[in-house]
Design a protein around this nucleic acid. Structure first.
Lengths: 365, 365
DNA sequence: CTGAAAGCGCTTACAG
DNA sequence: CTGAAAGCGCTTACAG
């Protein structure tokens, strides 16, 4: 809330009009490029606009025309590279559509999400793209979003919600990653990172479990290690994988951030990722293929998802009565070094330690 | 540009008023919490507001009151973690101030920056926070920003600009980093990464050169390696450091992203960072202290900078006639493992190779 | 080709 | 305590 008419008052259409000796209607027609304006009038008006440094007040125009030229985007945490890329894609597509982005973040708090949504909605966006905070329910969103603004859920589902949804194919992705590790000979495969509260995590776990089941492997509870989806938390949580022997020899991780954190955690324990332990990520963030070892992961194309989200939410404005749509975007496995180690599933713990030492020094044990 | 009055028309103050049998003025007073409304009236109106799912039209209110409740933020690239953290800080402070963030990105293109700024300005922000695209000139910004919207330049200066500026103390930071490496015994210290086009890079180079000069060292041209400030580009550019012997034994890098890229590039050449080569970064992004080796760097506190930026740009609204202010935020050196190797500046190339091999295997040469 | 007038959804002195 | 009226900066049939 800040006064904006400091310095001399802002220039308006009327100022231009009176300076040119025409009506503001004519100036408006010039601005909208109407052919019904005499060329000479147009010239004069355009010159005056430049001379006075007039800036168009789009809010006023939108009010009058009952249109919107903005889209609200509510995410959890901009510092997640996947989210940042997604936002960049949204930004690109909105710029092309002549729309502006209203950005807010919930920081994974349902209460803050409510406040942010309310504030953004009051600015009259044409639609809202929302990655709901963990634990969001329909009743947290419905009252504040109302019935008049199209809402697109991105990446996380809300139970029983009837809004459009766009997300990556988490189930298939995690299944592909798990099958890939199985094909390398691993049998003790962990699922590492993420929170069960998030639907994307649950879906990835589902894919992981289905691949194990198909291979006739029943996962042990301690192969499932939850942690917040950040590098730091993942590095810290690494210990849990090795609490008891036999430890897993590979892990499907919740996402690349977690995978990189796990790599750090492994190195801190003198376990070389990609050689002593196989890892797959999820998202294919830019660093994934620059890491040593390069990270096997699932490419979801967050930038393209961002663009797609804009299309969905703006398209919804035209057909309000369509039923809610679930759009599942395919993902693809990108195989790199971090998962290409071979497993030694039958080694006894002692033998394994000896073998590991010998691999590390390059001398026979 | 999208129609937003799909489904039945949006509820307005007038709808609530007529449903309650009062005037819209009264409803407005209820919304603003005026004490001049009878408690019973207030109750009725509030109930009706909830019942109809009314949502306040803040744009209309802002138009009438001639105020703004938004701030425009134009950055280059959201996928830079420093930028993402900064944006998160801006977001926090704006939320507290009851303002909304209009976000756009220039992708380092002056032309796109112009279009984005114009679009955002038309929405009437109370101020603009801008990290100018490389090569921006006053004439690229002045016409589109006009004279009525306070502009704050963040992190990069524009020659001869008279706008407020906020940035980290790049000169002092790079000088501290260089002095630290000198204190470890290094004499062949590179400056790695960044583009001379950006003022922040020039300032960091200035600090680096001044520390070298004070130590009586004249830097060789090939110690200066430019590259785009991304991990990938940095990894690729690593080769340039080792093109000729004697190679540098340490590098002050433009920022943490570049430093991490350099680490990858070094590992790819079998040079262990923090042991065979000393590195300092800039920014202290979250991974810096989680990396192996942990990265010595300069903490700039991007989140706090984001908050500070909001204060400066909103504060400017009140005192339009103050001269432009340069705010330089102090930085602090965080010493970690990546820079704690000792230099061997007098080693001949051959001897150095032998020594390096012996250090790596742990056996005498 | 141009202007007068009404109206978008609000707020705010002012009168009662 | 409440309402009528004017006005924020635009747009758009409509008349001329």
């Amino acid at each position: 809330m800040t006064e904006s008419d400091h310095r001399r008052r802002r220039i308006t259409l009327a100022d231009i009009a009176s300076a040119c000796g025409v009506s503001s209607a004519t100036v408006s027609l010039v601005l909208s490029g109407s052919p019904a304006v005499a060329a000479s009038t147009r010239k004069r008006v355009e010159a005056e606009i430049v001379r006075q440094g007039y800036v168009y007040n789009r809010s006023a125009a939108n009010l009058r025309r009952k249109i919107s030229s903005s889209v609200a985007v509510v995410i959890n945490d901009l510092s997640n590279p996947f989210v940042a890329e997604f936002a960049a894609g949204v930004d690109e597509a909105l710029a092309e559509a002549g729309c502006v982005m209203l950005l807010g973040s919930s920081g994974e708090s349902v209460e803050r999400q409510r406040a942010v949504l309310q504030s953004l909605i009051e600015h009259g966006p044409a639609g809202v793209i929302l990655t709901p905070a963990e634990g969001s329910k329909v009743s947290d969103l419905q009252p504040v979003v109302g019935l008049h603004t199209p809402l697109l859920l991105f990446n996380r589902e809300v139970p029983e919600a009837k809004w459009d949804y766009l997300g990556a194919d988490n189930v298939a992705g995690a299944r592909m990653a798990t099958e890939h590790l199985l094909a390398q000979g691993h049998t003790r495969i962990a699922f590492f990172g993420g929170h069960r509260d998030s639907s994307s995590c649950r879906q990835r776990v589902e894919g992981y479990l289905s691949a194990l089941a198909e291979a006739g492997i029943s996962p042990e509870p301690r192969w499932m290690v939850e942690c917040a989806p950040t590098r730091m938390q993942a590095a810290t949580a690494t210990a849990a994988l090795f609490a008891r022997d036999p430890a897993p020899t590979a892990a499907v991780t919740y996402n690349d951030g977690v995978a990189l954190g796990l790599m750090m955690g492994l190195r801190a324990r003198n376990i070389t990722p990609g050689r002593d332990f196989a890892i797959t990520g999820f998202d294919d963030i830019p660093e994934a293929h620059a890491q040593v070892p390069a990270l096997t992961t699932l490419a979801t194309g967050p930038r393209a998802l961002g663009r797609q989200a804009v299309g969905l939410v703006l398209g919804r404005g035209n057909k309000p009565d369509l039923p809610a749509r679930r759009t599942i975007s395919p993902v693809s496995l990108v195989t790199r070094d971090s998962s290409l180690t071979y497993a030694h599933p039958l080694e006894a713990p002692a033998g394994k330690a000896a073998k590991r030492k010998s691999r590390r020094t390059g001398e026979p044990a």
